[in-house]
Design a protein around this nucleic acid. Structure first.
Lengths: 359, 359
DNA sequence: TTGTAGGCGTTATCAA
DNA sequence: TTGATAACGCCTACAA
């Protein structure tokens, strides 16, 4: 009954085989108890083998594993979590599930977590502190084993408190607390790189299209721009900075605003590529050529940026790596190891939208 | 021992109330049992109130709800699922978590599901049947209440079989089976629209940059192009079609291939916007102007497309709506209602990359 | 309308 | 090394 000849098992010769062996992938039936019974051991033994919680004799090991194979048994995460407390899932708070910027980070997280047999549970906060809190609540309810927060607007203290309950990894800030690990984006450095690049090309008057200031990335990038300007004694006129929303349409409007203000500039940095795209079109509509009349630099190096007209000079940092590192850090935290600090540096990708200044 | 006087149970009159009321959002302690005890009713009663499983007297209702409030009780989804079988979560199989095309669908799904108090569990199949199957297994293990499949490469039969176990909603195909609902993209129509548009502008020789043919969306779009060509007696030369990978770089290469082949064409349709971007750059490198020399039409209307140079004429279908509809259909299926068939039509967005043909 | 008892599939604690 | 025996937090007959 237990071991049938292959012919019977695969049913290729006999009547349509039924039961265990052919169960389609998506029918997860067998329980730990059934495995135990069929193997003639106690449930605890099976559990131990599964989790390596204690030594089990060789023979029983192999026997049980074999039965597990036969039955296609897969432990029920739900039950596991109720009993043991761990769900093998990690909450990930992002802002928009379809963000072109953070999307890559999600992929990094997913890849790394999957290897470690954890599953990510993605929720979106929409850059709204209230929502972020409520989604965090949802994650807690679902008993995630840890939480990764991609930037957002939560108070630092909220995160630190949360780290009392479970491991937390957060991007976009520099925080230090027990059970909490943070990975900052290289925004300040990155914006500095853009300024440096333009300065090297001879530009002095560099305008900046900023993101919304209540947005951490935006704030940091603006800060980086200002700092580098100061460091190089470049003119830092308030009129050189306009504020927008990180969208293409916003970049378009911001550029027009800059143009109308009649402030003098020979180059523009947009705080993200999307706004750079919009700005580029506005420039075109105004009869200005890029880079001949105005140099343009973006930030993020979205996949499209290598193919715009002209291809966009931009600041790049591997968001995928940041996501992956966040996930690795989480795994470390879960195993009580101290995550190693990795620095993911920004770099400037020089393409054709920026050129040497000529008056 | 079990039923203590209220005063002892809630301790409100005694020492400074501790715990419960001030517990921070992220500390989910109280259990259903505690609520019951404190309200002086049985656990089942509380459960009934929570689920509306049976009639409960008004007074107990309000009393219990009040206690729930006080304790900040939130039912444990894990326990709930173990006992009742429902996890209030829906598995969503997408292909790449950061896909610019499907991303919007994810947002639609998330929004609708959240309103209905369901949580999405996103997994990625990477356009690989094996992976898709394995991720589906993961979803089953996690006991999701239903599964939404965004296109992908699974066999229809696999989905139909799966629908025996739990409700399934799938996009990108036309399938009819019990407990299964499908929403097709308007790919064929959409591609037809692009051809029609160019034809109306006087173009006769229209090239096509296709996606990879093992990709359902790609196949359907090519089919739509061919069908419309035939319908209008336009030349349908095999050399007019080149195959690529849905990426910008692929579009670039494809365009060069087209150019090198010396086939005669005055307009090009790219099977998605990303390839259109690449193609547009290749055209520029070759000294060809868009739309003066060549008209270019994309597909998807990504956010960037309104801001490219020139702004791209493209086919649009609301992927957000498709996601949202899929989620709604899932909710319907879960409540044993028959989802209503909604048609989300494609439309052509005419911008500046296409113009009247002149020889 | 309400309460009691048993069970969902695992893990954890004790003995043996 | 192994096996009973409780939990884990909730739902659901079954009974009252």
């Amino acid at each position: 009954m237990l071991k049938q000849p292959a012919s019977a098992a695969n049913g290729s010769t006999a009547a349509p085989s039924q039961g265990a062996e052919v169960q389609p992938l998506y029918k997860g039936r067998a329980t730990l108890g059934m495995v135990a019974q069929r193997a003639g051991v106690s449930p605890s033994t099976v559990s131990r083998i599964l989790n390596g919680t204690a030594k089990v004799s060789e023979d029983k090991q192999t026997l049980v594993r074999q039965v597990i194979e036969e039955l296609g048994f897969r432990p029920d995460p739900t039950a596991r979590s109720l009993a043991g407390g761990r769900t093998m899932s990690i909450g990930v708070l992002t802002q928009y599930i379809d963000s072109p910027f953070y999307g890559e980070a999600l992929r990094g997280i997913e890849d790394v977590l999957h290897q470690a047999e954890y599953a990510p549970l993605f929720v979106s906060g929409h850059w709204n502190q209230e929502e972020e809190r409520s989604r965090l609540g949802l994650l807690q309810d679902r008993k995630v084993d840890g939480i990764i927060v991609l930037t957002g607007k939560l108070a630092d203290q909220t995160l630190v408190d949360m780290a009392n309950q479970l491991p937390v990894v957060v991007t976009g800030r520099q925080l230090s607390a027990p059970n909490l690990f943070s990975i900052d984006f290289d925004n300040i450095e990155g914006a500095g790189l853009a300024v440096k690049h333009l300065h090297a090309l001879g530009h002095q008057n560099v305008a900046f299209i900023s993101g919304p200031l209540d947005h951490p990335d935006a704030e940091q990038r603006l800060m980086g721009y200002r700092a580098e300007l100061a460091r190089r004694d470049m003119p830092s006129d308030d009129a050189l900075v306009v504020y927008s929303d990180f969208q293409e349409s916003g970049g378009f409007r911001a550029m027009n605003q800059l143009l109308e203000s009649r402030v003098n500039f020979s180059a523009v940095i947009a705080a993200n590529d999307q706004m750079a795209y919009g700005a580029r079109l506005a420039l075109h509509r105004a009869g200005l050529r890029v880079p001949d009349d105005i140099s343009l630099v973006g930030f993020d190096d979205l996949p499209h940026s290598a193919f715009t007209l002209p291809p966009l000079t931009t600041v790049r940092q591997s968001v995928y790596e940041i996501g992956a590192s966040a996930a690795k850090a989480m795994i470390d935290l879960l195993s009580k190891k101290t995550p190693s600090t990795i620095l993911i540096e920004a770099e400037i990708i020089v393409r054709e939208s920026s050129r040497i200044f000529r008056r």
